[in-house]
Design a protein around this nucleic acid. Structure first.
Lengths: 215, 215
DNA sequence: CGCGAAGTTGACATCCGTCAACATGCGTGG
DNA sequence: CCACGCATGTTGACGGATGTCAACTTCGCG
């Protein structure tokens, strides 16, 4: 329902584009579905989910306006659900160009993600998460956080309790404070960067696990 | 040095193949190098590593004879080192066919890996790790474990102490026992499967993080 | 006003990392 | 053949971070 002609015309290069609106928590597509379309977020926020047999849910990512979903494989490796009411533009999957580059990017971000989940504390994960969101264009120090604690928890591999406690602690330390119901305000970006200490890969090194033990 | 003509001829479909031998801990290629060749493990075991600025090492995978390395991207996302003395067959990267499928597979295994690191206990990770190795063809219940504890730790996001303790515990419970210096013997594969409880993704589900809480 | 969902906070338990001591294996050199 | 030293692995004691359980609060909505 509620098509959005403005949005649809934004990218109307070919004829077959269509904009689809979703209510919060509606499912845009399911994991395993044939990916004969890919999607661009026009408005709202989307999450991609995988459900594991042990009952856990794993959110592989959040997608904001301008982001694209479902370009990397022949079938969707995760389902997509609306975090907020949102509009998606669906693109038929015939332009072959859209294939390899996003795939590499997906792999790259997967690797960064692995590093994040590997051995990092709750504070580090949350700091990195906030910074990641804050880094998208046109955003200043006011970071949207439209997803629930449970969504964040399932994305970072933590519990809602730890999320809550850590955010309270960051607020007490005046690093990021709540700003309205669905936003955070970054007060001390340097501190946040230090906390996150992004584990970017370096090209060469001899050290093993212990941090600069005997060096 | 020490080329292996038997191995080199095994796959000699084109002319430009070459087999290269490496001693244990030698580096086959570095992270960031142009991937104008890809490699097939002919003998021995190889690990792929990423080094993070915080001094941690992250092993993205282990490769056994028959496995291929470095097919997914234009530049190697990780360096490759010999775990044991090994022989690699290098293939020039011109056949375009080798690109997209392995890339999807890499992404898929990355996602499984993320699920593994997400929220799973040391025992679950180690059980899954052993099962993963044991699953390769021609292996029975005798699982090769040629890599050091430190390698396993850096792969699973644990410490060598936890690895050691957990293996001891699994042996005490008669699930897997040491079998020679570099092998394990699986005594109770069912128990191992239960412990690992492979978090295979299912296609639909409503549950959130808590395991079947109110259902 | 009341109810349920979501979030916060506290008490407690548990897992795993850290520190430290010791054991084992292996190569080198006497 | 043994002595020694270093790398690797094992084990124990301990503490801290985070999950679990439970109580309470807040918010949105009828």
């Amino acid at each position: 329902m509620a098509n959005n002609p403005d949005v649809a015309s934004m990218n109307a290069v070919e004829g077959a584009l269509s904009a689809i609106a979703f209510r919060a928590n509606e499912v845009a597509f399911h994991q395993g579905d044939r990916a004969d379309h890919w999607y661009e977020v026009a408005s709202g926020v989307v999450r991609t989910c995988r459900f594991l047999v042990d009952g856990h849910r794993h959110l592989t990512g959040f997608y904001f306006p301008g982001d694209v979903i479902g370009t990397s494989a022949e079938r969707f490796p995760a389902s997509a659900e609306a975090v907020t009411p949102c509009t998606l533009i669906s693109h038929p999957r015939n332009e072959t160009a859209a294939l390899s580059i996003p795939s590499e990017r997906a792999l790259e971000s997967a690797e960064r993600y692995v590093a994040l989940l590997g051995h990092r504390s709750a504070t580090e994960r949350i700091a990195a998460f906030i910074l990641q969101i804050s880094r998208r264009p046109t955003l200043g120090d006011r970071v949207p956080l439209p997803m629930s604690r449970s969504d964040i928890a399932d994305h970072l591999g933590l519990t809602i309790h730890t999320i809550s406690r850590t955010l309270t602690d960051l607020a007490r330390r005046r690093v990021v404070v709540p700003d309205g119901r669905f936003h955070l305000r970054i007060l001390d970006r340097d501190a946040l960067n230090t906390l996150a200490c992004e584990p970017e890969a370096v090209t060469s090194m001899k050290a093993s696990t212990p941090i600069l033990k005997g060096l």
